[in-house]
């Protein structure tokens, strides 16, 4: 963490870096990559996660599993900034020889699991959480999924499993941007009341404004103290946060921006 910068300033920097990455390699899912910026910043710059860029597989690290892989490209500039890989790699994203694809994989230092097909990450995280308990490790598991992933049945298999097995070292963050690919979740299949659904599966639940990076940090800090139940943070976010054309479009998931729209967003971000 660069102490000279607040988490809010860091979030702005990462959001701009993500837009610049989009200028260089348009095609990735920008809107859902923008909704998770404050979540990622809180985890990596807010002293929540233990990590080691020099040894990404350090046994003592916390495991961070991104299930919504397509919507996590804002993680690339964070990993580069922290030294997991050379920043020059960002300039050649999606080009021959690059390991940075539109959907990330485990060749990228800092990514723990294969993703891309939705609804898998939480189940894998359950396995990792059991493994860490077996090793008597203090390391925690954090998982990032989207609210749209809650449509996948396998996620509920994992939610039920984690609650039953009291996986207190497991922390889930739902990027609750309220939109899937074809529109608003409320219209497709209403997921609310999502907090109650987790509670009846024996999870501890918190809900915050997912763009209030300090609030996200505080909630996750509290999670680290609790060890008897799995925990979920419902982070209410806005899909395409920071780019008006994306924020307002129900189909923002697949919306492509023109160069001037990206430049305009970059100028207006604050």
């Amino acid at each position: 963490m660069e102490n000279s910068k607040s988490l809010k300033e860091k979030s702005l920097e990462i959001r701009k870096a993500t837009l610049n990455l989009y200028r260089a390699s348009a095609g990735f899912r920008l809107a859902s990559s923008l909704s998770v910026v404050e979540i990622l910043v809180a985890l990596y710059y807010g002293d929540i996660l233990k990590f080691n860029p020099k040894d990404p597989r350090d046994e003592n690290r916390d495991r961070f599993i991104i299930s919504k892989g397509h919507g996590s490209i804002s993680f690339y500039p964070i990993l580069a900034d922290l030294g997991f890989f050379d920043k020059a790699e960002l300039d050649r994203m999606s080009q021959p020889g690059s390991f940075l694809a539109d959907i990330p994989d485990t060749r990228i230092p800092g990514y723990e699991t294969i993703n891309g097909a939705l609804g898998h990450g939480l189940g894998v995280a359950c396995g990792v959480a059991i493994a860490l308990k077996r090793k008597e490790s203090d390391a925690k598991v954090f998982v990032l999924i989207s609210d749209g992933e809650l449509y996948e049945g396998a996620v509920w298999e994992a939610i039920m499993f984690a609650g039953h097995h009291k996986l207190g070292n497991l922390n889930l963050i739902v990027d609750n941007n309220k939109r899937a690919m074809m529109g608003d979740c409320k219209e497709i299949l209403d997921l609310e009341p999502v907090e109650e659904k987790f509670k009846v599966f024996n999870w501890r639940v918190k809900r915050v404004d997912g763009h209030d990076v300090e609030a996200v940090k505080i909630a996750l800090e509290e999670f680290k103290k609790e060890d008897q139940k799995p925990k979920v943070l419902i982070a209410d976010t806005i899909k395409g946060k920071g780019v008006p054309q994306l924020e307002l479009d129900p189909m923002s998931h697949i919306k492509n921006l023109k160069e001037e729209e990206v430049l305009s967003a970059l100028q207006n971000l604050c």
Binding site: T113, L122, V124, C126, G127, A131, K135, A158
Partner: peptide
């Protein structure tokens, strides 16, 4: 008993959990 898990009738979750355990070296 400490290394046996009945995941319930949930094959998808069984494979995900298995993968998580295997990634940790089991």
């Amino acid at each position: 008993a400490d290394r046996f898990i009945n995941v319930g009738i949930a094959e998808q979750n069984m494979i995900n959990i298995s993968a998580g355990l295997a990634l940790e070296g089991f």
